[in-house]
Write a protein that binds this DNA or RNA. Structure first.
Lengths: 344, 344
DNA sequence: CTGTTAGCGCGTTCAC
DNA sequence: GTGAACGCGCTAACAG
């Protein structure tokens, strides 16, 4: 049978309230050290474990954090990108990293549990209210903020991952896409390239991350006094530009885009980095295989998740809404080389 | 403010008890249909949501399922395998697929929430008892069953994923490694290969999955009346065997192993599938990149997770301990070819 | 410094 | 068919 607090109290010769005070762990309760010690000892030998449900009812808190994963579990049909891999597979990898970061942080910060919710729809108060004290939302960067705005209505703090900007009442944690992109382009500039193209949807994509990445690209070129080219998102168009000597290096908005570039070049008998230096963004699992090792921008997904937990706990402790940007890291591999003569 | 059951009762002109009976959903309570309808209507318009904590306390159940992820969040240093990628990255991908499967299943089966626990250690009753009604454990195939045996002590049903065998009191759901391996080798046999090697630790690895895969390899060869070769797990050794014409095809215990084979062969100027047909196991993210498209055995991780949820719910409903094996699927890509003349 | 009291909000008996 | 009373196990507030 389960041991109750009253039995511990009886065995220790104190009242239930005293046992509660001791085991709550909270200081400032004024229990004699000797008594406290005895209570702890008795609780241990009896194998007493406080009843979670009763405690939750009384304190109106659960100690649990909710995690909404917008992409995981969406069970959408996979979309082929460049015929090479699937976007949902990539998301799964990111979510895996995020899960890992969350787990680590939760354990080290002594959060009893993370409660997971698929993000898609019907995320009613019914499911969240009373089960968690606060919410971490891993937003799908390809979608808008609809889900986030719904969740913001809940009577609990919300922290959004993969997102930045002025969302009232919501703390955000994101990677610094713009700075990461700038760093990637600066790497190409340092290798002597001056004709650097941006590959991807960029501004036109409607995806904030991509827009920031293109902004970083433009920023780097402007700082170097060089012209930014119009974004390219057609393989053939890029191949033509390379053949004409208009482009010697490409910053691709994603690693998948970079993979598509490699494929398009290969179809024209061109190679990376011989004919074109190439930098991606994301450092997806498998980036080591692209072009024999794709130079790309690593996003610290696990660290972002851990930071999210810290921010959320801080807000539960009364801290104000905040916005955090984490630095990326340029992974220099073998797809970039010093500028040489043109091809074709 | 939150609406309480008493307010609903008052508004509907009945007592709180009646409201509870109606909203519990249970039949056999004998409430007049008309009354029930009115209560439901009132509850809806008032936006009444039963208090989770109070309900949990009263019913001694939570409606939540616990998920223990043994590998995710273990924050171990990555181990390099074949210099190509890392085992933890692979695990993350599998865990991602498992998370996706769990989420889908939980939603479609109307489970309010999944409570996630990092698997590593100190998974005390303190954390589990009273928070979840049952447990799904995604075991690390590379480890033993220590964690599982600890969890089996808990007063709740436990379902283990990625595991099979006779664990008292624990239901298991796993992929049929042996049948999958047999199928992979049969594919090589059908291409005319007769000198087929097994690459990996196999029996000697101490890892059950790998042992079963080697068993499947032997089974297929025996059924074809051909000799099984000793397991190889050195790249140079394999290269020698290929050059000597002793081996024309390899079944690798994992995709990472297959990647290592590709690399070793490339170092000796040999190629896949020209000089050697190669089949892997796992279908990891990135398998499309290995050897231009690795033929391999896909493991239905998401389906396995979904099945785990179903099994667990069944056990909560009184069903006995069970053991399930799910079929794999051979993904034929470009690393296998019909047997031709030997190289070197 | 410690014990007593009074609920937290709901579900489940039993009378009626 | 319905409602009143009770208690799940714990802890916040106060009394001593």
């Amino acid at each position: 049978m389960k041991v109750r607090i009253k039995e511990v109290a009886a065995a220790a010769g104190v009242s239930a309230a005293t046992v509660s005070k001791v085991l709550s762990g909270r200081t400032g309760y004024a229990v004699q050290a000797e008594t406290a010690q005895r209570v702890r000892q008795v609780a241990l030998t009896l194998g007493y474990v406080p009843d979670v449900a009763a405690r939750n009812l009384r304190t109106r808190r659960t100690g649990q954090l909710g995690v909404v994963l917008e992409a995981v579990g969406s069970s959408e049909p996979d979309q082929l990108l460049g015929g090479l891999t699937t976007s949902s597979a990539v998301r799964r990898t990111f979510d895996g990293a995020i899960m890992a970061g969350l787990s680590d942080a939760a354990r080290s910060l002594n959060v009893p549990a993370l409660v997971i919710y698929p993000g898609s729809s019907g995320l009613h108060r019914t499911y969240l209210d009373g089960r968690v004290d606060g919410l971490l939302v891993s937003c799908d960067p390809l979608r808008g903020h609809q889900l986030l705005q719904d969740l913001a209505q809940l009577p609990m703090p919300v922290v959004a991952l993969w997102t930045q900007g002025k969302l009232p009442g919501i703390s955000t944690v994101d990677v610094n896409h713009q700075a990461g992109a700038r760093q990637a382009v600066e790497h190409l500039l340092n290798l002597g390239h001056t004709r650097i193209a941006f590959y991807g949807g960029g501004q036109a994509s409607g995806v904030e991350h991509f827009q920031r990445r293109e902004a970083g690209y433009r920023e780097a070129l402007e700082a170097a006094g060089l012209p930014a080219l119009a974004a390219i998102h057609q393989g053939e168009q890029l191949v033509d530009a390379v053949c004409l000597g208009e482009v010697s290096a490409v910053f691709a908005e994603t690693d998948l885009g970079a993979a598509a570039v490699v494929q398009a070049l290969a179809g024209a008998g061109l190679s990376v980095p011989g004919d074109l230096s190439l930098v991606g963004f994301d450092d997806i699992l498998g980036a080591e295989y692209i072009a024999g090792g794709l130079t790309t921008v690593y996003q610290p997904a696990a660290e972002m998740a851990a930071e999210g937990v810290r921010v959320l706990l801080a807000r539960l402790g009364g801290a104000p809404v905040s916005q955090t940007l984490l630095p990326t890291r340029l992974m220099v591999r073998r797809s970039t080389a010093r500028l040489s003569k043109g091809p074709c």
